Amino acid sequence: MYKISEFSQLTGLSKETLRYYAEVGLLEPAYIHPDNHYRYYDDGSYFLALLLGKLRGLGFTIQEMKKVMKDESFLQLEALLLEKRKKIHDEMQVLQERLADIDAFLESGREEDQ
Rank of each mutant, 00 (worst) to 15 (best):
H33Q: 15
H33L: 08
H33V: 00
H33M: 03
P34D: 04
N36P: 07
N36M: 04
H37K: 15
Y38N: 07
Y38L: 03
Y40I: 02
Y40E: 01
Y40W: 13
Y41A: 00
D42R: 07
D43Q: 15
S45K: 03
S45P: 02
L50A: 04
L50T: 05
L52T: 02
K54M: 14
K54L: 13
L55V: 03
R56I: 01
G59T: 09
F60V: 03
F60G: 07
F60H: 10
T61Y: 12
T61K: 12
T61M: 06
Q63W: 04
Q63L: 11
K66T: 02
M69L: 13
M69S: 15
M69F: 12
M69D: 10
K70A: 15
D71N: 15
D71T: 07
D71L: 09
D71V: 06
S73P: 06
S73I: 04
F74N: 10
L75K: 15
Q76V: 02
Q76H: 13
L77F: 00
L80K: 02
L80H: 01
L82P: 01
L82W: 01
E83T: 11
R85Y: 02
K86F: 03
K87S: 10
K87D: 09
K87R: 13
I88F: 02
I88W: 05
H89V: 10
E91K: 08
M92L: 12
V94N: 07
Q96S: 13
R98C: 10
R98L: 13
R98P: 00
L99F: 08
L99C: 10
L99A: 10
D101P: 00
D101L: 09
D103M: 09
D103V: 11
D103C: 06
